[in-house]
Nucleic acid binder design. Sequence first.
RNA 1: GCACCCAUAGCUCAGCUGGAUAGAGCAACGGUUUUCUAAACCGUCGGUCUCAGGUUCGAAUCCUGAUGGGUGUACCA
Length: 589
Amino acid sequence: MDFILEAAVRAVKTLFAIDISAESLSLQQTRKEFEGDVTLVVFPLTKFSKKSPEQTGTAIGEFLVNRLEAVESFNVIKGFLNLSLKNSYWLEVFYQKINQPGFGSFPSNGKKVMVEYSSPNTNKPLHLGHVRNNLLGYSVAEILKANGYEVIKANLVNDRGIHICKSMLAWQKFGNGETPESSGLKGDHLVGKYYVIFDKEYKKQIEELKNQGETEDDAKKNAPLIVEAQKMLQKWEQGDAQVITLWKEMNGWVYAGFEETYKKLGVDFDQYYYESNTYLLGKSIIDEGLEKGVFFKKPDSSVWIDLTADGLDEKLVLRADGTSVYMTQDLGTAQLKYDDYQTDKAINVVGNEQDYHFKVLYLILKKLGRSWAEGLYHLSYGMVDLPSGKMKSREGTVVDADDLIAEMEATAKEQTDILGKAADFPEVEKQDLYHTIGMGALKYFLLKVEPKKRLLFDPNESVDFQGNTGPFIQYTYARIRSVLTKGGFKDDTVFMPIKTVSPVEKDLIVQLEHYPAVLTEAAQAYSPAVIANYVYELAKLYNKFYHEESILKAEEEAVKQFRLKLSAVSAEIIQKAMHLLGIKVPERM
RNA sequence: GCACCCAUAGCUCAGCUGGAUAGAGCAACGGUUUUCUAAACCGUCGGUCUCAGGUUCGAAUCCUGAUGGGUGUACCA
């Protein structure tokens, strides 16, 4: 559409003797209630033309019709100049631009980006909140790849700390040697079970101490279980063989469990970082910051940074006893990740409750003179709420990831059976289809919403399969595949001129043409939702086209070939876009 | 207290780099299948874009203030 803008600039120059930039003009798609394909808003030009909006629009319209081969006609309504483009133009866009091998993916831009996501705790299984994180991270990584980046997917595993000791201790005390093998429980669920047991027993002890007259705060500090857990953490840090062995064994169970869940979710990683390796990092950065005068020491020898000039608070970066805090560690891991890969950008996919932390982290790195800090970005997303409110692990009000996936598959099977769709499919294909549809519904549901918005998930009203949903789009794809097969479509068909392009065909071409711009926008905004909304619109348009125009029984062979081609390209873009969301599309359903 | 985020149809969400009469899906109601997959398509119903000011030819969109909701502000991670 740039050629229209350029011509409009020439028109303004010729007609009104004013130089304007193409950016100052606004060209948009014509609203469907008006005649035309594209619309130029002429209000801003009236100050140059010194004429009414209608006169200005008409003058430019005449100029464009005379000079541009592609423009068929125009009309002016109020301050809007609507241009209709010729059929030949749309066909050319379709054959010369959209139907080209490289369409819809960008060549390498030579830049590297790390996307860190998932970052689980190894003391409990994954829940719905983690699912949102994983899907977002994976999708953003794919979107960046499609935009030409080299992407490294990283997972920073939180495998150390007092919370891990809690489940270890509870297992020691109450576990009777239970293992995933002996209990048949998935490793992460087994460990999570003892985390919950710890909390229950701990609360009991607090109550007892309170009954003995201690204050709540004292009771929390003095309960034997927590004291013992802290002792265990110290032993762990000292490298106590027994503790380390137990830690390794239980972590092994958890990792096996996570692997299974990741596999079902369809996410993966190129690089793992473990906090047990990185928790001591960052102290040298503290020294550096003190030297540079970025940090300062308080009398108790704790180290701080004063960010009040930046509208933030004072922030602790090292404890008085010289041990690391969260910020110390994160400074260290940020440096480590950069040293490993020299990335141009690094994304942290982390919930919005850590907005402040990342703001501070990035600011500190900038103050320390890390030029690469400019490329850091916190992809912050809202929590997933249940109708009952927030999810809380300890209160058991969480939606477990594995349960959820199983439920989605069961629902997919149910729906498929009701519709009688897969009755004659081989068993393997059936199972595959249930998984594809179930996960398609779940992923689309979670990704179609802007990341930063909170999300309401009602487990009772299980995710829909109709309308603006994953399965709707998957169905559209399967439908196209079916018609292509029946039509004996081969990808080597050559261009055959046709007389007219119907309105819905034109709409479809326009939508397809938008794809690269949408891809760029999604990368800039780090938002899979942009892709989700796009592909939904595309599927909707295709269904309309499918309903309005006969493909296999088209009036002429040339028209049939054109429609088949249009269908094939639509399927390809649907497949590509869904791939960016981590959603598979079935050949039939 | 201070900081950040959110507020659009009964519900779930688009639209937000200012443009025409604010769009989808779900729910409710009605229609479409001798024809390429009806998980589809078409229609009806549904709106004080939280409120009040301001900027502008033009505001859901930008600015200010208020209200409601969420989160953070830990020598937890």
